[in-house]
């Protein structure tokens, strides 16, 4: 457990250091995630060394969003005043992102597979 925590927090800490050194606007957690993927891919760490902890964190991730969600109570008045634009804009835009991203990926992925099947890009 200690080793698992160490690896995950070390990735996060390196992310923090990179942000601090370079001043980039990418969050440390995203850098840490990419670093963990790279370490696993390079066989620098074994999957069993992080599996238990990461399974626990991922399966409970939704719960960690409760406190930032409760922050909504601070903006009830603002949200009430602009309720319609906020709700319509976010719902319509979210549906658009879902559908357009899904379509483009589905169509281009199929195209790519067909091409491979034809032997054009097959090695």
């Amino acid at each position: 457990m200690i080793r698992q925590c160490f690896i995950i927090f070390a990735c996060l800490a390196v992310g923090e250091v990179i942000v601090w050194l370079t001043g980039i606007t990418i969050p440390s957690s995203i850098i840490g995630m990419l670093l963990l993927t790279a370490l696993l891919q390079l066989r620098a760490i074994k999957l069993e060394w992080v599996k238990g902890m990461s399974d626990f964190l991922i399966s409970n991730m939704g719960f960690f969003f409760v406190p930032p969600g409760v922050a909504l109570m601070l903006y009830l008045d603002l949200i009430k005043a602009e309720l319609l634009p906020i709700v319509v804009a976010t719902v319509v835009s979210t549906v658009l992102v879902l559908v357009v991203t899904g379509w483009i990926h589905q169509i281009s992925e199929k195209g790519e597979r067909v091409r491979t099947d034809d032997g054009d890009t097959a090695e």
Partner: peptide
């Protein structure tokens, strides 16, 4: 609770 959000995002590196 919110604190664990960052380690959880790092953990997504596994899948």
């Amino acid at each position: 609770i919110e604190f664990w959000l960052k380690p959880a995002i790092v953990a997504l590196g596994v899948p």
